[in-house]
């Protein structure tokens, strides 16, 4: 019966959105729900994508046209040596073999780390975007301990919607 209602009310009625389109929107929106200690006031929030850009032009268009305040800037970087000035670093899946090293090098920089690499939060990343499992949409997994170690915290709304883990 649960399947019936679920299909009646949720999965069946909602048409799908491309995965990285929705992830772009979420990544763009994420700073609204994060307390970045080093980003007071209305200075632009620097979003960085480490590795190949999986978002196409979606994140770029959102950054330029969504009109959020504080504004977002977007940079694509190829390594942690280019991460200076980044407030949020999205680590692309292609970097999965190197992710632990990347996290080590980003440590103590007060940078929010985000990725959709499976197990990212357990590896010490702060925010993992997941797909699959029980939900049809995107899930958020948060390693709050890793974030707090960098002076970063999340607001209550995000915490309620996310799955929290403590590896």
């Amino acid at each position: 019966m649960l399947l019936s209602l679920y299909y009646a009310s949720a999965h069946a009625q909602s048409a799908a959105v491309p995965e990285y389109g929705l992830k772009a929107v979420l990544l763009h929106k994420l700073p609204e729900f994060v307390y970045l200690e080093r980003k007071p006031g209305n200075l632009p929030v620097a979003l960085c994508v480490l590795g190949a850009n999986p978002f196409g032009d979606a994140l770029d268009r959102l950054t330029r046209e969504a009109g959020d305040k504080p504004a977002r800037t977007l940079r694509q970087i190829t390594g942690t040596h280019q991460a200076g000035g980044c407030d949020v670093v999205f680590i692309e899946r292609g970097e999965s073999d190197r992710v632990e090293g990347i996290l080590q090098r980003l440590a103590n920089r007060g940078v929010l780390t985000v990725s959709d690499i499976a197990g990212f939060a357990r590896l010490g990343g702060m925010v993992e975007l997941t797909v699959g499992g029980e939900r049809a949409g995107i899930g958020i997994v948060i390693n709050r301990k890793a974030a707090r170690a960098q002076g970063i915290d999340f607001n209550a709304q995000l915490l309620r919607l996310a799955t929290l883990i403590e590896p």
Partner: peptide, 8 residues
């Protein structure tokens, strides 16, 4: 946003 199903 989190309730939107995605195509993978």
């Amino acid at each position: 946003l989190l309730a939107i199903p995605v195509v993978t």
